[in-house]
Simulated assay, not measured.
Amino acid sequence: MKKTMFAVLAGMLAMGAAQAQTLSTNAADTAPHFYMGTGIGVVKDSVSGDRDRTWKIFGGYEFDQNWGLEAGYSHLGKTGFYVPGTTDYTAAHIKSSSVYAAAKYKYALSERTSVYGKLGLSHGEYRYSSSAPGWNFKESNNGVYAAVGVDAKLTERVSLYAEYERNGKRAWNGPENRIFGAGVKFGF
């Protein structure tokens, strides 16, 4: 999986560098604007070690070419395990999600490609459900949200991104809080 992610990052950087040679700088890059986006990712299940798909939606505001604020929702997937102490090995299921708000700093490598970092707060929710008594409950926690990534512009308002995120604290049982993801972002 790591090799695939690095290949995607390298391809995006190469694409952005090639496009930057033919395009001129636009004043829209420095003008404040809103953006929104969506993405998919991969998260590791701490119980089984399997990799699950995730998805996220987010929105933000860029004050200038470097600084912005972003907030988003990530669906971290669904996993399961067998409830200890039951004779029939009843399965319990965990549905996980996270919301975050973060400051974002972006540094341009070329006219079309930039790298960024995000730092903020995250709130995670984990819903446990099972037919076993006492295994239907919700757990939540707060923690630090951090991400690093690369952004490659396709047009002045549409770009592709790839990033590594860390969403707060991990639940005692369920998806890990590290996500590799990629998606598309639309500016307004």
Results as ranks from 00 to 15, higher is better:
I179M: 05
A103G: 15
K78C: 04
T155D: 08
E156S: 12
Y35I: 02
V8T: 15
K95S: 13
H93K: 10
K95C: 04
A103H: 05
S129M: 00
N26S: 12
M15W: 11
V8N: 12
E176P: 06
S159Q: 08
E125F: 14
S96L: 03
G181M: 06
A92Q: 00
G68W: 01
D50W: 02
H75C: 02
S114W: 01
Y89Q: 15
K78I: 07
Y161A: 13
M36A: 15
V83Y: 09
G41I: 00
Q65P: 04
A20G: 15
G39Q: 01
Y128Q: 05
R178W: 06
N66W: 05
T54D: 06
Q21S: 11
E70L: 02
E176Y: 06
I57R: 08
L76E: 03
K118V: 03
M1N: 15
V150S: 07
G85W: 03
F58M: 06
Y89P: 15
S96V: 01
V158P: 06
A182M: 13
S46R: 10
G174Y: 01
R166K: 06
S97H: 10
W67H: 11
Q19L: 07
T30R: 04
Y61F: 13
A18K: 08
Y164V: 09
H75A: 07
K185C: 08
R127I: 09
T4Q: 07
G60H: 02
V43S: 07
K56R: 12
G68Y: 06
Y89G: 15
S24I: 02
M5S: 15
S97K: 06
Y128T: 07
S122C: 06
K104L: 03
W135H: 13
R51H: 13
G39A: 02
S24C: 04
